[in-house]
Amino acid sequence: MPSEAIEREVEKFLFKEARLLDDWKFHEWLELFTEDVHYWMPVRTTRYSRESKAIAVLDRAHQRVDELANEDELAIFDETKQTLNMRVARLDTGQAWAEDPKSRTRHCITNIEVEEGDNANEVQVFNNFITYRNRLETEVDIFVGRREDTLRKEDGDWKICRRKIILDQNVLLSKNMSIFL
């Protein structure tokens, strides 16, 4: 199990990341990711459970029960470092109208659990988020979900090399996803 010191480091890392996002310091935020990062938020499908009696299944072979899309299916984000850079470059143009005027965001990160990673220099981090977004006059969105992050130590600094975002919505209750989670 990772030490408490590492847990504390990870916690500080995630809080700092949240602050950079809320302060629109996206170039500094990008530095928190490795070059090979996969930043992924799959869509969700509402399905009956295997035990459900609401339907009588005709063909078990074609009855899916998993809510989350697979990696080769649709996602809201399916990004590399290059495309994250591109998204930030878009915001820099002064012509990204969905974020001009800007969103007011507050990323709240909780329930942080740090576990051993697949490699010696990595840790697996589970954390929940409540992200509030307010924009223009009365636009309000509240995004709640869980992130499964893999953090890797590179040159003495933690960096995110994989982020899986599980948003707790079926229909995205917003007119867009123009912020980062």
Binding site: T45, T46, R47, A54, A56, D59, R60
Partner: peptide, 23 residues
């Protein structure tokens, strides 16, 4: 009658009083 987005069924049962419809 059906509250899921997708799936596979021979029949759908209404979960209020139990009327059941074939596919």
């Amino acid at each position: 009658v059906c509250r899921a987005d997708a799936g596979n069924a021979a029949a759908f049962t209404c979960t209020y009083h139990g009327w059941t419809y074939g596919n």
